[in-house]
Amino acid sequence: MTRRHIDFEPPVAAVPAEPEASRTARFVIVVLAVLIVLTSVWHLAAVVLYVTPDNSMTRTYKKQVDSHIRPEFEQNWELFAPDPIQNNISVQARVQTAPESPDARSASRWVELTGTDVRNILHSLAPSHEDQLMVQRAWEFYARTHQPLRETPTSPDADVAAEYLKRVALQRLGRDWKGQPIARVELQETVAPVPVPDWGAAVGRDLTRPRTLPWWSVTDADYRGIE
């Protein structure tokens, strides 16, 4: 029978009270123990509701759950799910050095921001998060807080997202382009689908579309700390 117990065992044996403890002490322990267990159950219930797909319970208790989970217990375990990413996404930037000509013809060539990342990741056992995540996540953050095409903000974090993405790009581009200070910058994302293998069916739902952002003007303030 000893092998039938639940094998997840804590290193400390659960002996709440020494036998000599008085009745009051034992009562206090039991009350506190119940409180602690209830707290744990409450916490786990909130976590369950937070990570499950949208359903009737998550809609009913959204406010309570969010206020409990955010910010420090926030989590998302949709790892490579429901479908893994099927597109090689790359972020590119081009710049203008003369502020008075908004004409796209005076723009530089497109500079690959993702290419450097990929080169740094290649043949590395422990790639840096600077290469793996910085450009990718900055773009995602922006895309999540702005409406496509019109690029209007959809979240209170939109300003932070735009400024962050701009600074991530500028840090990699540097202050000058061919000896001239950069005055404006434009970012775009291109999407190259991974070809479906011969034996696979084209059933994925990765709907990422290429996106080009408007020209942003660049000032010295944008470069604070990143040069």
């Binding site: 429901p82 099927q86 994925g204």
Partner: peptide
């Protein structure tokens, strides 16, 4: 749970894609 909802996981080809992403 989320993977079961994914057509690619059902198709048995899901693992192919992340291994072909440059990142």
């Amino acid at each position: 749970w989320y993977k079961i909802q994914g057509p690619l996981w059902e198709d048995g080809t899901a693992v192919y894609y992340p291994l072909h992403l440059a990142y």
